[in-house]
Design a protein around this nucleic acid. Structure first.
Lengths: 188, 188, 188, 188
DNA sequence: GATGAATGAGTTTTCATTCAT
DNA sequence: TATGAATGAAAACTCATTCAT
């Protein structure tokens, strides 16, 4: 059943879109209200400030992403499987939840850098996978943060190019290619 | 000899720092004037608008980077050497010209997306290298934009982690590791 | 027996406190609702507007004070007795009904100046007492409004200092002192 | 020479008038700008906020008053002379500097209560005078704050009535009457 | 070239009041 | 009666840009 969108839902939706496209700073409360079909005042019944709205949005979506990723890793056993699932999860999320993904990336790269480090669970998860692989002797001994950076960079940049239409390759093939590449990066 | 910094120099310096740290939108002309030790009005003696200042800054620095990279590639012959030089050039630039690099990345990722595509010379250079490698049968046949994305992502994300102090590895070793990894990515 | 406080009672209580402490303008309906434990809408079930609420409150409390003062003057005969009772009444009221007194003073001094003059019964009563004393030849011939101003000022300012803890004297002694002083002011 | 009124002067003038008449809270930045013939933005070039404007205004005017009072007391020797000068100074200031006086009273009574106590120099001066009188055996032994409260109340309330036109007595006679009364209050 | 006060359009935020439930 | 989400008009405040000096 399609829940009747409440004003708050509309508000969040509108903010997500706009923040993603134009950035937080460049999005005005007027923009948001207009797009959400509400009055500006209404924003402040739900959030203390535009800033708080952005933060809450970020936290909520990061959490959402986090759960999504965990779901993807559920039935994996070996570090290889885990890494594969991790990468695929990233791609899937970016495809299925374009707005959420886009907002998370945009907000993270630029305007919400001050966010507490310990909220970066996905990154920690990657570190764990890599460490596990090393412990089991299946991955090369290399600083996990360095390896993590390379994997993350490879994945995120590819998604970015994909979105901007610069890669003329079938989606699934891209994913497979990136998965393979990431595995090659870290395996012995 | 250190030429006495002109007002314009101070202005550019201040703008670069601030744009990099806070983003263009979030940096006010007041911020810039304060940091540069000039008056707000002076900004408009040299640039038509804050926007133009940012664009000029971007173009100039991109050009600067471009020349830097070309210098790095001067005496390379094989595609492997070229790729290696390309990656090392990126790292060196990010280290020697922290402010310029930081600004370029920040501006590129977020606020100056509208910048004409043909200014992305470094990316085109990478594509050329990869294509050359494939033509010569030394690199795998794979979409050059996909490969380019992976290389760029690997390099840029590593630099990002490096800057934020998350990688506890000797700088040269990191560079070597990334170079090796990028080569592995594209070689047969 | 303590009747269970109705919503309206709570509302009035909260408004009284807040108006007294922060002033009418600076007290928001939200403040009131929060403190009263009711919803903002409920305010408008009982009063037409915040303004009306303040006015009603003022009138009611002034009336209450008026009755209180009259009670104090009931069995007085001579002008001296009357003046003494008047002053003591002021002090007693300010002590027993701190919130009411505080609100009346605050509202009177500042925000409800537009209140109809004829509501200032206590002041008129003072004028009457003074005039009576003069008629009977017991008080000096002096403009009653001037004398009234001096008496009122002496009393009210003393109460104000007393409340703010600046007078380190036993309460009853203060009252006696002020009574004596006021009598000295007006007597021959 | 009539200095050409700067925008800042106009601003301060306008704010003083309006704050005095309507209170700080009830005066809008728009009111001020309109009356001063400047734009709202200009307010913020000179003061950080409306609140700061009010505070600065208060401090400056209190200081001005303070200097005025000190001047009045310059050539006084006995406590009686001092008290007389103090009271007369109050009246004179309230007459010659109506806007300043009005603003000080209004702000003090209501909206700037949080102001640091030690700024209340005029009150402290009164205490000193009274204490001196007691030490010299010329004033009654009575808590100086209590006596101070009575004197202040008498003076301020009379000025208030005077301004609102309720006292139909020649100005000088009122002042003399109040001076006499205050002396009687404190003398043996 | 340089200044910095001034502007005014735009942005964020507040808040008394309304209204469907 | 009571609620509380929603409103919209107005308030405070910001800031790129202009301009007289």
């Amino acid at each position: 059943m399609a829940r009747p969108l409440t004003k708050k839902d509309e508000l969040i939706d509108a903010a997500l879109s706009l923040f993603m496209r134009k950035g937080i700073k460049a999005t005005t409360t007027r923009d948001i209200a207009l797009r959400a079909g509400i009055s500006e005042g209404t924003i402040y019944r739900h959030f203390e400030s535009k800033e708080e709205l952005a933060e809450k949005l970020f936290e909520e979506n990061l959490d959402y992403f986090w759960k999504f990723l965990k779901g993807y890793l559920k039935n994996t056993k070996t570090p290889e499987e885990m890494l594969q699932a991790y990468v695929k999860g990233f791609f899937e999320f970016s495809r299925r939840e374009q707005r959420r993904y886009g907002f998370l990336i945009a907000a993270h790269q630029t305007e919400l850098k001050k966010l507490s480090r310990e909220k970066m669970k996905p990154k920690q998860m990657l570190s764990k996978i890599l460490r596990l692989g090393q412990t089991q002797g299946r991955f090369r001994k290399i600083d996990v943060h360095l390896a993590g950076a390379m994997v993350m960079g490879t994945v995120m940049q590819t998604i970015f190019y994909l979105k901007s239409g610069r890669i003329a390759v079938n989606y699934d093939d891209v994913v497979d290619e990136v998965v393979t590449t990431c595995l090659r990066m870290v395996k012995k």
